[in-house]
Nucleic acid binder design. Structure first.
Ligand SMILES: Nc1nc2c(ncn2[C@H]2C[C@H](O)[C@@H](COP(=O)(O)OP(=O)(O)OP(=O)(O)O)O2)c(=O)[nH]1
Ligand SMILES: [Mg+2]
Ligand SMILES: [Mg+2]
Ligand SMILES: [Zn+2]
Length: 581
DNA sequence: GCCGTTTTCGGCCCGACTGTTTTCAGTCG
């Protein structure tokens, strides 16, 4: 059972406990534990094997009770407390809880007072006008729930970054168009550069909000809520969008609030309380004896919020309550890598396999982007559907690389590379002598994703220890929103990569983002080198670098952790080859 | 259920909007 599944069990425990009327703080503890497990780079199974129950209890937010539940889950396949809860509370209510506007109290009331146990029954009851018999519910409530059920049925889930960015540009343009916005900025998960985006959150400062709200309404196909300072709408794309309007004085604290994450804000606000302060979206205030907010001491600009608490400024990408507040207090936050630090791209495809453009076209596109070097890394033969290269065609490609190099001049260095398949048994899909003549060998898994953890780990280790591999490409094999990562033990893989001097790729394709933020962090903390590569199959894909830098920043990476921040290609190659060639 | 440069008991973030309410609970950001 992988960490995502364990987290899902804890989430379910939280949801059902909540409907059952449990203490909300206990429910929150389950949710916090679920988040912690989901963020864990190492499979819990491996953690337990090495450190036992104590290793689990070491994790913040996981104590004796939850640790025991997790062990129980891994040993027996279920959590006793969850099994009992499922006997008592209909599991169909989990869907009811997912309906917007329905929380634990209403779900419970539907169930206890109307015998509703799932969404279909809720829909029938709403149509039959039965919900209005409940206290605090009327005809409008029924209509609202029916609309929410429709959205739930159509529900599109989360979005990839480029799709969210495209809609965000439209929203920002429309708000700007009103001329009433003094400042405006994308907030929420998009500002934090999370790997997928649930909805758009936009902060605006203005002295009047009516025309801004009207502009947002005009973009939407459905209005979920509309007040003086907040609007919640469904855009025509189906994406949800929340707009918050504040006045200029509140900009900093409002931006902090709306950027989140929720877990970060809750932790920061808790720290403020312990310092006799209180934070809301309007500022940082001294806390009076009676518990109300007193003198305002900060909040015009975002950095003041941190400063007021004695903290270093925490960049949005780090605001996930993963230790950033403690690091900011200790002055040990990383100096995060930036896009301008990256000097080249080490994973580029061309028409020699499944890329869309020639070597020279890709080279010129890279020059336009200021790159000092790119590695031409087409697929090896095993990936037949991509027209992958065998040793003979690989050697032919070198002549074209040389020709392209002469043609584009010395503005950029074209490196001979390959993305060689790691075959089922961990051997490489190319003879060793051919690989030895290359500048850059990226090795990746493209088949047999279903191997168990031990088999896949051994397969990756064999490739890493071959002495022929410089970079492990898209190390988990995941496709965002489409394919889960394959099972393997990152700890052993990272240890082997460090020992062999093999770098780990942060694949910057927004369909992949692989390594993920948490794994990238674990990798450099394990002493591994990283590279950020686009896996470009088209000139415009070279711009994916931004997304890779986002991941690196979310993974606490500094410039020194990423090899392709080296401007000089010869020095870069020396670093890439170090330890195994 | 977790946690502790105040603490091993008693806190645990804080406010906008909605619907139904005559003063607020529930839900959500
Ligand atoms: N203080 C506080 N802020 C919250 C709470 N819930 C949400 N926020 C803030 C922080 C969030 O980043 C921001 C936007 O809320 P969203 O629900 O859209 O979450 P976010 O954008 O982080 O993730 P998403 O990708 O949309 O799921 O609002 C909360 O319970 N308390
Ligand atoms: Mg959001
Ligand atoms: Mg939102
Ligand atoms: Zn690949």
């Amino acid at each position: 059972m992988d960490n995502a599944e364990i987290a899902a069990h804890l989430e379910q425990l939280a949801d059902l406990s909540e409907i059952a009327g449990e203490n909300p703080f206990k429910v929150r503890a389950y949710r916090a534990a679920a988040a912690r497990i989901r963020d864990l780079p190492t499979p819990v199974q491996e953690l337990l094997r090495e450190g036992g129950l104590e290793a689990l209890e070491q994790l913040p937010g996981i104590g004796e009770r939850i640790a025991t539940k997790i062990v129980q889950l891994l040993e027996t396949g279920e959590i006793e407390a969850l099994r009992k809860l499922r006997e008592r509370v209909p599991v169909g209510l989990l869907d009811v809880l997912a309906i917007e506007g329905v929380g634990p109290k209403k779900a419970r009331a539907f169930w206890q007072q109307l015998g509703i146990t799932n969404v279909d029954e809720l829909e029938r009851a709403a149509r039959a006008g039965k919900l209005r018999t409940l206290p605090g519910m009327g005809e409008r409530s029924e209509r609202k729930i029916l609309a929410a059920i429709e959205r739930w049925r159509a529900h599109q889930g989360r979005y990839l970054l480029p799709d969210a960015e495209a809609d965000m540009r439209r929203v920002l343009a429309a708000i700007r168009e009103t001329g009433d916005a003094h400042r405006l900025e994308a907030a929420g998960s998009l500002r934090r550069r999370r790997e997928t985006i649930g909805d758009l959150d936009v902060l605006v400062s203005a002295s009047r909000s009516d025309r801004i709200m009207e502009a947002v309404r005009a973009l939407s196909r459905e209005v979920l809520g509309l007040g003086e300072t907040r609007a919640a709408v469904v855009l025509r794309s189906g994406m949800h969008c929340d707009v918050r309007v504040v006045d200029d004085r509140s900009w900093g604290s409002a931006l902090h609030y709306f950027t989140g994450s929720k877990a970060h804000s809750v932790a920061l606000r808790g720290l403020a309380r312990s310092q006799g302060l209180t934070i809301n979206e309007y500022g940082v205030f001294r806390l009076r004896e009676d518990g109300t907010a007193g003198e305002r001491i900060a909040g015009d600009e975002e950095p003041e919020v941190f400063l007021a608490l004695g903290l270093d400024y925490i960049p949005p990408e780090l605001r996930e309550n993963r230790g950033e507040i403690e690091a900011a207090a200790a002055g040990t936050l990383p100096v995060l890598i930036e896009r301008a630090d990256v000097c080249g791209d080490l994973h580029v495809h061309t028409t020699w396999s499944d890329g869309r453009e020639s070597i020279e076209t890709m080279a010129r596109a890279a020059i336009e982007r200021g790159h000092r070097y790119i590695a031409i890394t087409d697929h090896s033969a095993r990936l037949a559907m991509t027209g992958g290269l065998d040793a003979k065609r690989l050697r032919e490609q070198w002549r074209e690389i040389e020709a392209a190099q002469r043609s584009v001049g010395d503005a950029i260095r074209l490196l001979r590379g390959i993305e060689v398949d790691i075959l089922e048994d961990g051997t490489l899909d190319m003879p060793a002598d051919a690989l030895a003549e290359l500048d850059v060998v990226v090795a990746s898994v493209h088949s047999h994703f279903g191997q168990d953890l031990e088999t896949m780990t051994a397969r990756l280790l064999r490739a890493i220890e071959s002495g022929r591999v410089d970079i492990l490409g898209h190390p988990t094999g995941r496709l965002l929103l489409r394919r889960d990562p394959y099972a393997f033990d990152p700890e052993r893989v990272f240890a082997a990569a460090k020992a062999a001097g093999v770098a780990l790729e942060i694949n910057a394709s927004p369909l992949r983002l692989d390594l993920s933020d948490t794994l990238a962090k674990a990798a450099h903390e394990a002493g591994c080198a990283l590279v950020i590569s686009t896996d470009a199959h088209h000139p415009t894909h070279l711009d994916f670098l931004r997304y890779g830098v986002d991941v690196a920043r979310r993974g606490w990476c500094e410039r020194r952790h990423v090899l392709n921040t080296e401007p000089d290609p010869e020095r870069l190659l020396a670093r890439l080859h170090e330890g195994h060639r």
